[in-house]
Amino acid sequence: MKAVVGVRPSPHRLIDEGGTARPYRWHASIVDRVALEAALRTAETVVAVGIGGKPAKECVRTALTTGADRGIHVSFDPIEETVAEKYAAVLARVAAREDPDVLYVGEFSPLMDVEVAGLAAETLDWPSTTRITAIGADEVLADDEFGANEVAVQRKLDVGRQEVLGVELPAVLGIDSGFANPRRASLETAVSGRRAEIETIPLEDVVPGESRFSMSVGAATIERVVPNERWGRGEPPRGGTVEERIYRMLGRGTAEGQTTGEVVDAPPEEAAERVVEYLRENNLL
């Protein structure tokens, strides 16, 4: 079985004398190291994927020194932390290129939550399940039979309750942080991982159209904003009730009260002249 696992950086924080927590260094997130452990236990080939800048590449290196067979770094210079939906989309596209049997995702990361597994599965159009605590017919607590193209998983429901499922492959599996303790690699594996080459792919080669800016924004709605000329060219109103001042700032009222405007009952040329005259008198032109 071939597996792809995402590895994300997480800040290791140091508390200074003033009690302020400051970023000290970045290292592979513990939840992704648990997901990597799940991959190493269940797959013959493990591909670790890091998405971002230098800290993400270092996470791939950590995965290689732990036992991953290959490492891929999707490279770009982040503005801020990558939002979950963008990370999931890039991870899914890399997984599609690798054609694995399973995509493993660590859950409840400090920077991203459980939705990454679902978003990646939606992009790939694969089945998914989360909160997995055991994988494989020999590990789950059941005697059920599973299909040739299914993997048996045990997942947490709530305190003291778990269920066993057969998930058809290929699939996205979200690994619970209590799955297992990450392994300590042998010296030979660690040295080999340090020497291994990491394949670097520019972000635009994976998701054309994305940029270092868009990766930190996520879904956004842009609205056209028109400045209010009446307020913008003078001081905000100071008198009257709050409601009256709001109406006047929006250009919907006067010092005497609220109004919805004045109807100019005149031919177009005359009406235009009166509007221009009003604007000049109120210093709006």
Rank of each mutant, 00 (worst) to 15 (best):
A152K: 09
A120V: 02
P208Y: 13
V276L: 10
A21S: 14
T221C: 03
Y278K: 08
I15T: 15
A95I: 10
E37W: 10
P182D: 12
P268W: 04
V172I: 05
L119E: 04
P127S: 04
I51Q: 05
V167E: 12
T260C: 06
L279R: 11
A121Y: 01
G19T: 08
E81T: 12
N282W: 04
V94Q: 01
G52K: 01
P268K: 03
L111N: 06
V159G: 07
Q258E: 03
G257M: 00
D69I: 09
G53D: 04
V207K: 02
E163A: 15
G160F: 00
T259R: 01
P236A: 07
L91I: 05
P237I: 00
P236W: 07
I79Y: 02
D101A: 15
P55R: 03
R224H: 15
P268I: 01
W126S: 07
E270P: 02
A272Q: 09
E223W: 12
L173K: 08
A35W: 02
P208H: 12
S29A: 14
R248I: 05
K86R: 14
D125E: 15
P170S: 13
R25T: 08
V242T: 13
V34L: 10
A121H: 01
V60Q: 04
T200P: 10
V116P: 00
R184Y: 13
A180E: 13
G251T: 11
S216K: 06
R93F: 06
G239T: 12
I132Y: 11
V4I: 10
T65P: 02
E150I: 09
L14P: 00
V153F: 05
G67F: 05
W126E: 07
G193D: 04
R8N: 11
R195F: 08
E188N: 05
L40D: 09
N283I: 02
I175E: 02
G218M: 11
W231I: 07
L64P: 00
T133Y: 07
E107V: 03
P55W: 05
E17H: 11
A266F: 07
V74W: 04
V276P: 00
M249P: 00
V34N: 08
E256P: 00
E168T: 15
G118M: 12
C59P: 09
H73Y: 04
S177K: 09
Y278E: 05
V94C: 03
G166D: 06
R93P: 00
V275W: 09
